[in-house]
Nucleic acid binder design. Structure first.
Length: 631
RNA sequence: GCCGAUGUAGCUCAGCCGGCAGAGCAGCUGUUUCGUAAACAGCAGGUCAAGGGUUCGAAUCCCUUCAUCGGCUCCA
């Protein structure tokens, strides 16, 4: 839920949630809007220009009011914050005398149904600022919103039944029009998203025009949960966590490690082709290096605490940049060598807050698909776009089509605090990135005040099965840190110049990438990535020898194959291979043995009977080499 | 980190108004030898997250800690 375009009170508020303002979509980007619409299938954003979406949002926002009405009846002292429509539903934030329980939710829902049955009309009224302040005198959050409104802004209220709310609207005509809804859960949420302000109770609900659509949505939710990488990771024996080892530190079983390894080899091969050189810079770094880079100042809250011996203070490496800068500096460089591209599958450790950990997607020990590109200003655009091209190449291989590219820029107010204090360079670099993206015809949205401390960045945002948003790829321009490290190269005139640095991680961390791929493929990896590619299934014990021989031949050809020689029945073996999402099952019995064939059963249910063994070898070899997405 | 919820066998869960720790699946053993998603039988498996408290007696009630889950905040 990146964006809440349809908001009620919050629309006045310009909250920090408002990250993807539609008006910022680059008009010059033909197709940008279409691209966004195409990816906006679920949990991405509300399209404010779509009348159907607007109608849904109006209904959902009205449902939020009805919920507030019910809550007010049950908790007379309740304080109300905001209650916007969101993707698939709505929420309302309350300040209540006690925490809500699941029982409360059903009670609230019941009352909501009563109000719906009563068909209470939504009545709008415009009020003066003075009377608004009076009406909401005992509602501190509403008062804050009113006080933050621009002087000349019209102030309106909506009333339905006994509930009166500060609200810009619009609403449906009466409460009977809010359709089918269900309250989903209650969660804590900071007032105005600020962790220094009070924590409110947020009740989430979903709402749809018809009961059928509601049920469909709940079904989709349930299906999405089945794709959750934490669940599939356990079911397929890919990875686990242990309280004994520690939170946020995933342990990979052989199968999970196989996927990691395959991905890593593929990436190493690809980026070597793209002109990267691989380096290695270890696990620990003296703290002083991070002081010099500026990371200590901007980043220390995600670093593990200091490790100290008598003389030195060390930190577990949370990022690579300073190490790569040091590596660059250890040799003299000529302009002829640039661009120089240092890549590393870096082992990093970040002390993520406990509540932020999330399966493989957010961990404390990780391996980043990292690289730093040192180049001249003239080379920048081409290098930057080469990175974007690399993203797109990877995304095609993995069939990743649901993502949004986001340009994060600085904000003036953060200069010298959140950001390096040099506005001229900020504006210049941001313009360079915009130009590169525009010239390359790459659609993107802008996110003000989301940049890295050393420069603007392009992030590729993706969504987990349960709808959480994550950054997959990142491509960051750094105009600050090279100078701090006195990085130089000798230019054509024999003078020293500071290179630009592009930080890039097109496939995130191996952990997040694997977590994402598990969900993306629902555990059914393409053949080249599948930890086990073939399961040979003998029909009876008499066929064990033939099955073992087939498996061995495949292994010799570099295929990850295994014969299931257990005493289970054939049907059980098929079921087992099927549940493990093994791409190919080779069922063999008397017929196959006699003719040196196999009966191929694909994971998707397709069957090819009496297939020549050589033909199967050719098939799987082709699928692996082409990294095919089909079976 | 914050708000709320939840921790019982490898997994999914029952038991929880205090009174002998249970089921299904998985595992092991045996029987079965079967043509495309679960053969049958037996056996084994738990300091009920950890620590403290209340009680004659605690998986069950209370407190603390840890972990996980749903959000918020933050992020690759």
């Amino acid at each position: 839920m990146l964006c809440r375009i349809v908001e009620s009170e919050v629309a006045h508020e310009r909250s920090r949630h408002y990250r993807m303002p539609r008006r910022r979509f680059r008009d010059s980007m033909t197709g940008a809007i279409d691209m966004i619409a195409a990816v906006a299938s679920d949990d991405i954003q509300i399209d404010a220009s779509d009348p159907h979406e607007q109608e849904l949002a109006r209904m959902r926002h009205s449902a939020a009011h009805v919920m507030a009405e019910a809550v007010q009846e049950m908790f007379p002292g309740a304080k109300f914050a905001i209650g916007p429509a969101i993707e698939n539903g709505f929420y309302y934030d309350f300040d209540l005398p006690r925490p809500l329980t699941p029982d409360d939710l059903s009670a609230i829902e019941e009352r909501m149904h009563e109000h719906v049955a009563a068909a209470e009309p939504f009545l709008r009224a415009e009020v003066s600022r003075a009377s608004a302040l009076e009406i909401f005198a005992d509602q501190p959050y509403k008062l804050e919103i009113i006080n933050d409104l621009p002087e000349d802004a019209p102030i309106s209220t909506y009333r339905q039944g006994s509930f009166l709310d500060l609200c810009r609207g619009p609403h449906v005509e009466d409460t009977s029009r809010i359709g089918a809804f269900k309250l989903l859960n209650v969660a804590g949420a900071y007032w105005r998203g600020d962790e220094n302000r009070p924590m409110l109770q947020r009740v989430y609900g979903t709402s749809w025009p018809t009961q059928k659509e509601l049920e469909d949505y709940l079904y989709r939710l349930e299906e999405a949960r089945k794709r959750d990488h934490r669940r599939i990771g356990r079911e397929l024996g890919l990875f686990t966590f242990s309280e004994d080892v520690g939170p946020g530190i995933p342990l990979f079983f052989p199968k999970g490690e196989m996927v990691r390894h395959l991905m890593e080899s593929y990436v190493r091969e690809t980026q070597t082709r793209y002109g990267y050189q691989h380096v290695w810079t270890g696990h620990l770094v003296k703290e002083d290096l991070y002081r010099r880079s500026g990371h200590l100042e901007h980043y220390s809250d995600v670093m593990f605490p200091v490790m100290e011996d008598e003389e030195q203070r060390f930190r577990l490496k949370p990022m690579n940049c300073p190490s790569h800068m040091t590596l660059f500096n250890a040799q003299l460089h000529s302009y002829r060598e640039l661009p120089l591209r240092f890549a590393e599958f870096a082992t990093l450790y970040r002390y993520e807050k406990s509540g932020e950990l999330f399966g493989l997607m957010r961990v404390r020990s990780m391996q980043m698909n990292d690289a730093h590109i040192y180049c001249t200003e003239e080379q920048f655009e081409q290098e930057f776009m080469a990175v974007i091209d690399l993203y797109r190449y990877y995304f095609e291989v993995f069939a990743i089509d649901k993502f949004v590219m986001r340009l994060s820029t600085h904000h003036r107010k953060g200069l010298g605090k959140k950001y390096i204090d040099n506005e001229r360079l900020w504006l210049k670099t941001e313009e360079m990135v915009r130009r590169a993206m525009d010239n390359g015809g790459v659609p993107y949205v802008e996110a003000p005040d989301e940049a890295a401390f050393y420069g603007p960045k392009i992030d590729v945002q993706i969504w987990s099965a349960i709808g959480r948003e994550f950054t997959l790829a990142t491509n960051q321009v750094d105009f600050a840190v090279p100078a701090r490290f006195d990085l130089v190269y000798t230019n054509r005139e024999g003078k020293e110049e500071t290179p630009l640095c592009i930080h890039r991680a097109p496939l995130s961390t191996h952990e997040r990438m694997i977590g994402f791929l598990i969900e993306h493929f629902a555990g059914a990896f393409p053949v080249w990535l599948a930890p086990q590619q073939v399961r040979v299934i003998p029909i009876t014990n008499d066929h064990n020898g033939y099955a073992a021989q087939l498996a061995q031949q495949l292994q010799a050809a570099g295929v990850r194959a295994e014969a299931d020689l257990s005493s289970e029945r054939m049907n059980a073996k098929i079921r087992d291979a099927q549940l493990m999402k093994t791409p190919y099952m080779l069922v063999v019995g008397d017929q196959e043995m006699a003719n040196n064939t196999v009966s191929l059963r694909k994971r998707n249910g397709e069957r090819v009977n009496s297939m020549d063994v050589g033909a199967f070898h050719a098939l799987i070899k082709e699928k692996i080499e082409s990294r095919a997405l089909t079976l």
